[in-house]
């Protein structure tokens, strides 16, 4: 076969593959909204009380649980992941220790979420005798997110030009002051965009939630030690028990809410990131 013909065929095949990949996503998004959007936007659903046996239940406490869990996990995860990233990017000298830490991070990154879930259950429920609660889930999820979050934060820090640090230190600032006043603010937009993936994972994670946080609540959780039922775990629970007659409606509506939350996360973090870059360029 002559090379030009082969090239044309290959180009067509790559276009087809790209369109298939996009088609899969479009199919899923359209199906989610077509099946669940009408349910999802009803106040009696997204803010309503859940039903254990009858139909017509809402997912109000579950939506609150999801948001609560995301915020709580980020409160733990953000300082630890960014702190570790600062250490690796700014303080540590490349050597045996950093290589070892990176190996641990890579390993942690491939541990299946169900293993994290079982670990969290063993630690908090069996050893510390807690009941299922938001805090147990948040700590487990912070560990699960550490490798991904750290990597994106470290990349953002490394993109800050070396000359910024040199300029700051030549004026007499020590390393930490340089990091705090110069490097971190410059890297902030990148660090914030790096939260998209972890935020999405916390929101959509169900295995950890099922074993450490809980799958059903009637009341809105208030304290971090309260049991809760984040939406992703609740959806799984509802379809797996199939007790309520309208469980299909609940799962479809819940899936649509999760997708809306995912869009909000994407949009919100990008806006926040843009706000920080603008603030920086104005010298604020």
């Amino acid at each position: 076969m002559d090379a030009r013909k082969a090239d044309r065929i290959a180009t067509a095949v790559f276009w087809a593959i790209g369109i298939i990949a996009l088609g899969i996503l479009a199919f899923i998004v359209i199906e989610i909204f077509a099946r669940g959007l009408i349910t999802a936007v009803k106040p009696s659903f997204f803010a309503g009380k859940p039903q254990a046996l009858k139909e017509g239940g809402g997912v109000g406490p579950m939506v609150v649980s999801t948001i609560y869990l995301v915020v709580l996990t980020m409160l733990i995860s953000f300082p630890i992941s960014v702190g570790a990233a600062i250490y690796l990017a700014e303080f540590a000298r490349e050597g045996r220790f950093t290589r070892f830490i990176r190996f641990c991070l890579d390993s942690l990154g491939t541990v299946p979420s169900i293993v994290f879930a079982i670990f969290g259950m063993t630690l908090f429920l069996f050893y510390l005798n807690w009941r299922t609660c938001l805090l147990a889930g948040a700590i487990t999820m912070a560990l699960l997110n550490l490798p991904v979050f750290l990597r994106s934060a470290e990349e953002a820090l490394r993109q800050v030009p070396l000359t910024y640090r040199e300029a700051s230190m030549s004026l007499g600032a020590d390393r930490w002051t340089t990091v705090k006043k110069i490097v971190l603010p410059t890297a902030m937009p990148g660090i914030i965009t790096g939260t998209i993936l972890p935020l999405g994972r916390i929101m959509g994670e169900s295995a950890v939630v099922i074993f450490t946080v809980g799958v059903f609540v009637r009341a809105i959780p208030l304290s971090p030690f309260d049991p809760a039922a984040p939406l992703a775990g609740y959806i799984w629970y509802v379809q797996s028990e199939a007790v309520v007659p309208d469980y299909r409606t609940i799962v479809n509506g819940g899936a649509a809410i999760l997708l809306i939350l995912l869009f909000l996360i994407n949009f919100g973090t990008r806006r926040l990131s843009a706000y920080y870059s603008k603030k920086k360029s104005l010298g604020g």
Partner: peptide, 12 residues
């Protein structure tokens, strides 16, 4: 699109 696909919860 691929980023978004990565964020779609596995239960969904």
């Amino acid at each position: 699109g691929v980023e978004l696909l990565a964020g779609i919860p596995s239960v969904v």
